[in-house]
Design a protein around this nucleic acid. Structure first.
Lengths: 165, 165
DNA sequence: GGCGGTTACATGCAGTTGCATTCATAATTG
DNA sequence: CAATTATGAATGCAACTGCATGTAACCGCC
């Protein structure tokens, strides 16, 4: 009872002004910066960043081959959105979905040559967009601090992955 | 020619590792924290944060009345998305769209009593969600620093508003 | 081996978004 | 003041998303 009073258990927590501003700026900045980067890519005829993410996961893997579920876990999209993203990537000839030999439920994703090329071709534009919309506003040091503070708001990998089911 | 070589003019800028991490964390954290807050609200039967934003803008205004274009400029949604958000709000009886007497092109938005009540009723849940998903991970001071760093990435109001056309 | 539960992936449907365009009314200007 | 341009708002359509659910294959266990 004392304890409850002390730490406010059972009562909805209230956020301070600083917290609220951090929240507001986080959402605004997140969507805004994302938008601008996406726009830059689109203007140059490139697909969305989400495409890049998948291609990059595959490109990092040996042979450009990875379990579908593994990629899914890394890109943090809802399962049904991920499946349909793969539909688009496959239709565009960037990846192939191959039924897994060992586990009849799962697929193995293969990066095609076209996919590899696109990933590689996108990077300079992507990198430049990040430099313009993030880098140019922050010192090296500020970027590090920002990254650190942001990471404090992220749940760990496992929790993160669970949210996509 | 010397100049070009020195400052890299004409060559796409490259971002450093710190910058890239800041970018990655910004996007991840932004969407993730937003998601969790939205989920909390939804679980309690409340509409999305975007609804709150509009209602709040109107509630702040004297009489709960504001030009549609003015609200539009503040909430930073694309024009067509904003219009349709208003469709939903109006259908839900939270606002009314009234043709403007002085300018035949524009509307004036009126917050209804139901709208005012909903806004007010949402806040505790919203505030609590912010406290949980942002506040509990940061000290007061960290929140201030984070807000400051994030604001450096935002373009000014005017530029921001232009992007929504 | 067969039955309940779980995992991996897919899909139908309704709701939302992006894009291009339209409509009507101001504002500007030749 | 008529013609042009600019502004505020809306909409048709295609694409995308969320949600619930479906299907098939695996896993554990009696």
């Amino acid at each position: 009872m004392q304890l409850q009073a002390i730490c406010g258990a059972g009562v909805a927590a209230k956020s301070s002004d600083d917290i609220q501003l951090a929240w507001a700026n986080l959402v605004r900045t997140g969507t805004n910066v994302m938008q601008r980067v996406e726009d830059d890519l689109k203007r140059q005829g490139f697909p969305p960043v989400a495409w890049y993410d998948v291609l990059w996961e595959l490109d990092k893997a040996p042979e450009g081959v990875l379990q579908q579920s593994e990629v899914q876990a890394r890109v943090l999209l809802a399962q049904y959105n991920f499946v349909r993203l793969l539909d688009r990537l496959e239709r565009a000839g960037l990846i192939r979905r191959v039924p897994c030999k060992v586990d009849g439920r799962s697929n193995v994703l293969h990066l095609t040559d076209a996919g590899r090329d696109l990933r590689k071709g996108m990077w300079p534009a992507y990198d430049a967009a990040i430099a313009v919309h993030v880098g140019s506003h922050l010192s090296q040091n500020e970027a590090g601090v920002l990254a650190g503070l942001l990471s404090k708001l992220l749940p760990d990998r496992k929790t993160l992955a669970m949210r996509t089911r």
